[in-house]
Write a protein that binds this DNA or RNA. Sequence first.
DNA 1: TGATAATTGACAATATCTTGTCAAAATGGC
DNA 2: GCCATTTTGACAAGATATTGTCAATTATCA
Lengths: 154, 154
Amino acid sequence: MSKTRYPLHTDAGAALTAVMLDIFRANGALLAAGDRLVEPLGLTSARWQVLGSIALSDHALPVAHLARVMGLSRQAVQRVVNDLEAEGFVRFEPNPHHKRAHLVVLTGKGADVYAAASEKEAPWANALAEGLSTEDLETVHRVLATLNRRLDTD
Amino acid sequence: MSKTRYPLHTDAGAALTAVMLDIFRANGALLAAGDRLVEPLGLTSARWQVLGSIALSDHALPVAHLARVMGLSRQAVQRVVNDLEAEGFVRFEPNPHHKRAHLVVLTGKGADVYAAASEKEAPWANALAEGLSTEDLETVHRVLATLNRRLDTD
DNA sequence: TGATAATTGACAATATCTTGTCAAAATGGC
DNA sequence: GCCATTTTGACAAGATATTGTCAATTATCA
């Protein structure tokens, strides 16, 4: 354990603390970049993410379930889903298993705009990843996934 | 380049896309954990971060400069700084180089509470990093720092 | 020097997300 | 079947962040 700059930290603890600050900054920068990327489609980063959770799910889910999958509060997702519904990107379908918890599904318009967003995302992500080692990126993925698992179980 | 799941992505682009989702989730989970950690001190994650930027700076800075350092908007930092000033954690000092852009400095109370937060953070971060390779964490730091640099220069 | 541009804090509007509360609906254990 | 617990959407309040605008101040440069 290093004693120079962060006397109370283990080496790993100090490295993780630096990573946390990186994450805060990356979060803001990625949201801003995403907003710019999908703004021409009438989307925002938040709406895009919710749309993605719906599109990539095997079967239709109610709002509360979407929120759990995304790691957000029910209310945050509910508000965005309501906005998406008002703009015709998603619609609610009856849930045979629950009277109130309607299932959220993409409309044709929603599927189209999500496909368009995906087509914009790929070259943008490819360019952003240019020169970065795939192996390193997978290390980042593995470490962050572990971190998220630990934070979720607290 | 893999052709199976993300046909438009390079391998690195696909890995980076997964990392972006990790970052969004980690951001929320870390903010929530930070809020719980420093709540007994009368702080929040946002206030703690601003306090940290002030504490770790070599010399006193005005709000706009703090915002640039943190990668946030001027207005977001201004609001938090005003809250911190109202609660006696920071005070404004005249800036010899600028009539309006006052310098933000910690009060004794602000320095104390930041020291207390640091003492709580270290064991918490150490525990969260337990079992993670320091080398991997430094890889994460390096990759995210590169990412942030690229996102900032756009 | 003097005009133009950039920076800064103040103010307003808005988006995103959180916590808390409530009643309806579903679930689980007896 | 019944009751306690959990889940769910609705509603409200507040924290955190963004963009846009404005006037005051500072910096730049011809």
